[in-house]
């Protein structure tokens, strides 16, 4: 499972808030970050989130297909104060539908909802769009820790319980790293 979107909308902040419950005002554009993990209880199961940040490769629309491999969910983030970022989001949704795994759970996060006085994207627009593509939608604030937990909880609930997604990788060899068969891999 991974997050991506237009640059500068706060993907890394969301991830950082979710995993570390921490917000840094002047977090540098993502350098050195790549993936984080966090385990979330969901019903009787533990969902292990392996979150891949896009490391800026989305910036010039040059995201590598390896990001999609075996992903159970994608979080696409836009900035509610920037209409452009919402347009870009639509491009990513299209890209994902064309090239991503078929049963991927999509979640749209309108970040920076603490700045709603300078909002450019009405929540209604986002909701209508999300409904049209069958995605989860929430407005979040990584800064004030609003809806971050809810976002990932929502994804957790959507991920089908018996993992029918194509990732029949049992037996795959991880060179540096063991895959943890007890939990679901979603990157």
């Amino acid at each position: 499972r991974y997050t991506f979107s237009d640059t500068g909308v706060g993907k890394s902040s969301i991830v950082c808030r979710f995993v570390q419950d921490h917000f840094d005002h002047n977090i540098s554009p993502t350098i050195g970050a790549s993936f984080m993990t966090k385990t979330v209880p969901c019903g009787n199961e533990l969902h292990k989130f392996l979150i891949w940040d896009t490391a800026g490769q989305e910036r010039f629309h040059s995201l590598a297909p390896m990001y999609y491999r075996g992903s159970a969910a994608a979080v696409i983030v836009y900035d509610i104060t920037k209409q452009d970022s919402f347009h870009t989001l639509k491009k990513w949704v299209k890209e994902l539908k064309e090239h991503g795994p078929e049963n991927i759970v999509m979640a749209i996060a309108g970040n920076k909802c603490d700045l709603s006085d300078i909002r450019e994207v009405p929540l209604k627009d986002a909701k209508e769009y999300a409904e049209s593509i069958g995605a989860i939608v929430v407005e979040t604030s990584a800064k004030n820790a609003i809806n971050i937990e809810e976002l990932f909880q929502g994804i957790s609930r959507r991920i089908p319980p018996l993992d029918p997604h194509e990732n029949g990788n049992n037996g795959a060899i991880k060179l540096g790293k063991a895959s943890t068969p007890s939990s679901r891999r979603c990157c």
Binding site: T30, S34, A55, G56, R59, A64
Partner: peptide
């Protein structure tokens, strides 16, 4: 792609097309 990702993670800028 894996190596490109590592490059990007350390700040490399990517531009296809």
């Amino acid at each position: 792609q894996c190596f490109c990702r590592m490059c990007a993670v350390f700040g490399g800028i990517y531009c296809l097309r």
